[in-house]
């Protein structure tokens, strides 16, 4: 099951929700659409499902152009953010809906419908709920019903809009892993929308990062973290300090902050041209040590243990910097010396 999107643009009045989107997925892939709210990810998902239409560009599914295919003929599973369960139908009837509305010739018999629905409910671990109404079950259970309903039509592609958005943190963690397993076991191709980077990085084979209607980078989680393509991706993924600087004479100079320059060779990414840049430095990319008054450039604001080390927050000339330090090395209020080991620089 493959999807190919080319040159997709969608405008709502004067604002462009999607600009020239290109995206290809491979069969069996689990792809996340990640971005802040308003970046266009839900619009893209809705266009794939046929619930919205692009102003220009094409959507192909399994090589077939979708522009003339209405939503009901696309056979895609769509899980809505708030599930959109049919309130007046039992769990069983919700899941059976897609089978019951098939044309008579393709419609399975009553016994077959029952068998398939029950099998799906079992698989979703909600077999006992089939007679309940949507209002009578929990949020996590509704999520599973919505998923079962979408899967009942044996979709070519599963689309999920913020699948965990309406759930509390505990339920969310458990469902995440379960969904990943389900995807693998059932051999699905899935696309899901999220604004939670942790969720995207943990679940997806590849993550497409969206910013203001553009798809800025699509890559594996590892590549995204290691080699962000733009300042936006670097800032959005991983908790990095963001400092203004300048590339000149073979090194990165931090203008307003009391940090030593970093030679180009130490940088993980940098534009070829010299000039003003934005530098991103992650917590583990700092070296911190206590220092006497004259050599110190930062003060420790707070610390808390995290695993085998301490997670510390320092005040660096007004910037709050997060870093890692050995446990018990530092005291709150202590002057320290903070030195970046590496950085990623993007032209500003």
């Amino acid at each position: 099951m493959s999807v190919a999107v080319r040159g997709l643009t969608r405008r709502f009045g004067p604002t462009a929700a999607l600009r020239d989107i290109a995206l290809e997925t491979r069969p069996g892939e689990f792809v996340a659409l990640l971005g802040p709210s308003g970046s266009g990810k839900t619009t893209l998902l809705r266009i794939l499902a046929g619930l919205d239409f692009a102003d220009s560009g094409t959507v192909e599914i399994e090589g077939q152009d979708m522009s003339a295919v209405p939503a009901r003929a696309r056979r895609l599973g769509f899980v809505f953010q708030n599930y959109a369960l049919f309130r007046h139908m039992s769990v069983f009837e919700n899941v059976a809906f897609g089978l019951r509305v098939r044309p008579r010739a393709a419609r399975p018999g009553e016994a077959e419908i029952g068998r398939r629905v029950r099998a799906l409910l079992e698989r979703m671990q909600i077999g006992a709920l089939e007679r309940r109404m949507p209002e009578q079950i929990s949020g996590g259970q509704r999520q599973r019903v919505a998923l079962a309903r979408a899967l009942a039509i044996e979709p070519r592609l599963l689309l999920l809009d913020e699948p965990f958005g309406a759930l509390d943190a505990e339920v969310r963690k458990g469902l995440r892993r379960w969904l990943r397993d389900l995807h693998t076991e059932m051999g699905l191709t899935s696309l899901f929308v999220t604004h939670d980077q942790e969720e995207a990085l943990e679940l997806a084979d590849r993550v497409a990062v969206m910013e203001a209607g553009r798809l800025v980078q699509i890559d594996t989680p590892e590549r995204l973290v290691e080699a962000p393509a733009t300042a936006f991706v670097a800032g959005f993924l991983g908790h990095a300090a963001r400092l203004p600087g300048r590339l000149a004479e073979g090194a990165l100079h931090f203008g307003g902050v009391p940090l030593p320059p970093l030679p180009r060779a130490a940088l993980r990414a940098a534009p070829a041209q010299d000039g003003p840049v934005l530098a991103f430095i992650r917590a583990h990319e700092w070296a911190v040590a206590p220092a006497p008054e004259g050599e110190a450039n930062a003060t420790l604001r707070s610390q808390r243990p995290a695993g085998g080390h301490a997670h510390v927050e320092l005040d660096l000339a007004g910037h709050v910097i997060e870093a890692e330090a050995p446990l018990g090395l530092l005291r709150v209020g202590q002057p320290c010396r903070l030195v970046p080991q590496t950085a990623r620089a993007f032209a500003a």
Binding site: A49, G50, L51, P70, A71, R72, A73, R74, R75, L76, G77, F78, F80, A84, L85, F86, R87, F97, G98, V101, R102, R149, A150, A152, I153
Partner: peptide, 10 residues
Amino acid sequence: AEEAAATLGA
């Protein structure tokens, strides 16, 4: 709800 019904083939 109607959109969901449409994606389910109704």
